[in-house]
Computed example of a mutant assay.
Amino acid sequence: MAHHTFTLNSEYIELDKLLKLLAIAPSGGIAKMMVAEGAVSVDGELETRKTRKLRAGCVVEVAAGEFGAGETIRVVGADGA
């Protein structure tokens, strides 16, 4: 399982955009499909909202499957917290 840290440059980032930006999903459409299929959880809970706003402190987990061996993303603020 790969671990990532993403630093926010604004108040939040939408879930599908984060998956695409980190190349976990090859496109925005695939990112939305991954969420819709139940492959993504946020803070330990299954997430079905494709455009969920992620803020500093959120932890995103992408289950192993068609697009990889599993990923964990920690979202941090510009100050690293």
Rank of each mutant, 00 (worst) to 15 (best):
A78S: 15
K20R: 14
M1G: 15
A56R: 01
G68R: 02
E47N: 11
M1Q: 14
A78C: 05
L54W: 11
A81T: 10
K17E: 09
A78R: 13
L15V: 09
V42N: 02
T51S: 10
E61V: 08
A81N: 10
L21P: 05
F67P: 01
V42Y: 08
H4P: 06
E11M: 00
S41C: 13
V76S: 08
R74P: 07
A56W: 03
G70L: 04
I24L: 14
G57D: 11
M1S: 14
M34P: 08
E14M: 08
E66C: 03
A25E: 03
A56G: 10
F67H: 14
E47D: 10
G68K: 00
L54R: 08
V60N: 04
L15F: 02
H3C: 04
Y12M: 04
R49P: 12
L22Y: 14
M34S: 04
L21K: 13
M1A: 15
G77P: 11
A78T: 13
G65N: 12
S10H: 02
I73Y: 01
S27L: 08
E61C: 10
L19R: 01
E45R: 14
M1H: 12
I24C: 02
G28Q: 02
L54A: 13
D43S: 11
E14L: 01
V42S: 06
A23M: 14
V35R: 00
G77Q: 03
G28L: 07
D16M: 04
T51Y: 03
L21T: 15
I24M: 11
A25G: 14
L46G: 10
K20S: 07
F67V: 03
L22D: 06
R52S: 13
A39P: 01
V60R: 05
K53P: 15
I73K: 01
E61D: 14
M1R: 11
G44A: 05
S10P: 08
H4Q: 06
L8K: 01
P26T: 06
V35P: 00
D43Y: 05
S10G: 07
M33F: 02
